[in-house]
Nucleic acid binder design. Structure first.
Lengths: 235, 235
DNA sequence: TTTATTAATTTTGTATACGGTATACAGTAT
DNA sequence: ATACTGTATACCGTATACAAAATTAATAAA
């Protein structure tokens, strides 16, 4: 059990990975102070790998570690369960979910279906400023010969997240958030190297800029399909 | 407040509508007795309209009505919130969600995206028995001149649910269950008359039987799009 | 040494108690 | 008559207590 050890230097340990978790994917739960706090902390601990996949969460210990009682922690765990980040086994406790490659493939299929819809709508309705914003995600990496993988991964997710949350279908966005469709994949880091996916991203952005929604959809499908296929081959 | 009144004759009142809720779309939570019970009951009460959209749920009253304490009720409400059936407003309580036509349209777009993927996969992998099962959903209605709308609605949802849960992508199934993509639409009853949708269903089934997955996908898209468009026109 | 059975300990799920916040209402002032 | 403020009540969120179940440890038998 490494919860006790890890929480002391926890704030310092938070790397950039935790940053986009904060900004792009955190439920707002103002005023439900303690449940909200527990939710955020535990989610961060999972996504930053301080609670490892497969590890059991002992409620009493984690609660005292966080300085709260079990009640708000339990509500937090319930939320995380609905987000597919932990699994609750009745009368046995809750464990951090571990995604198999099979599940990853399934998730990619869902992403392909939903993100296709998202880019199409985004391309149709996006304003000038939004398109400009999209262009900026990868502008820093174009010049660089050696890409900072850590930063690239963050922008990668931010890019996809931006399209999804700005496509005009808030229910679709909720679907993504609720099941952590974007985040859970990154349990394993980047699926494909940046030098391979960067050009794909840029092509998609160009298609969006041109207002060519069919092309944007096809490129997005292809982009995701390639990553899916790579995982499929590992099965 | 009509909770007290309604629970007395509650068991009797449960119509067939509650049946498919039970069989096709209930989270399994064996052994978490009271939370599970509360979850089922409250979900049934919402989907059978005993708790009406917009109505506030007073935890203490509903808990005593159900014969349990507030704690398991609260966990049940938390689950229902993640399913988008109720909305929890911090320090104010939880109310039954009311879906606007705009939201319905958004939901239809998500359904089109995901169910397209589902029929494609289903058509590809379905065994003989599963195809036979699919054929039976509407076999009773083919002969009838006057269709029992109540029963038809149930089979309609069961049909879509069957494709989704048997398409080989369990994550996709979870997505549907978790957000009640199939059920919440029926807050308003059948969107289009049975005599209009029945032929469409039969065509889809034929395409599946023929193993023509592209056709099955197109027909499914068209089928859902027509309902979506009808709601869009009401905006 | 290994396996079975039982006792001890841990941990979960539920109920209850408590403090604080929001809402309703009455009385006062404008 | 209407607006405002103070008080009472209702309700929510959290902590704690307790019982049932599960896990672990320990002891006895093969």
């Amino acid at each position: 059990m490494q919860i006790e050890d890890s929480l002391g230097p926890f704030i310092q340990t938070l790397n950039e990975r935790s940053f986009w978790i904060e900004v792009s994917n955190m439920k707002e739960l103002t005023n439900r102070e303690l449940s909200s706090l527990a939710y955020k902390k535990v989610k961060e601990m999972i996504l930053s790998n301080q609670l490892r996949p497969g590890e059991k969460i002992v409620q009493d210990k984690l609660a005292t570690t966080l300085g709260i009682s079990r009640t708000p922690l339990r509500t937090a765990l319930q939320m995380l369960e609905s987000e597919y980040l932990v699994e609750s086994i009745p009368r046995r406790g809750v464990v951090v979910r571990k995604l198999s490659n099979e599940k990853m493939v399934e998730i990619y299929d869902c992403r392909i279906a939903l993100e296709s819809t998202a880019v199409r709508r985004f391309t149709q309705i996006a304003t000038k400023d939004k398109i400009e914003r999209v262009k900026r995600f990868f502008s820093d990496f174009i010049k660089q010969s050696n890409i900072d993988v850590e930063k690239y991964q963050i922008e990668d997710i931010k890019f996809h997240d931006y399209i999804i949350t700005n496509c005009g279908n808030s229910f679709l966005g909720k679907l993504f958030q609720q099941s952590n469709l974007l985040l859970c994949i990154n349990q394993i880091g980047l699926v494909r190297p940046a030098h391979e996916t960067l050009p794909e991203h840029l092509k998609i952005i160009n298609a969006i800029d041109d207002g060519d929604c069919n092309l944007a959809v096809e490129l997005t499908k292809d982009h995701l399909l390639k990553s899916k296929d790579l995982i499929t081959r590992k099965l």
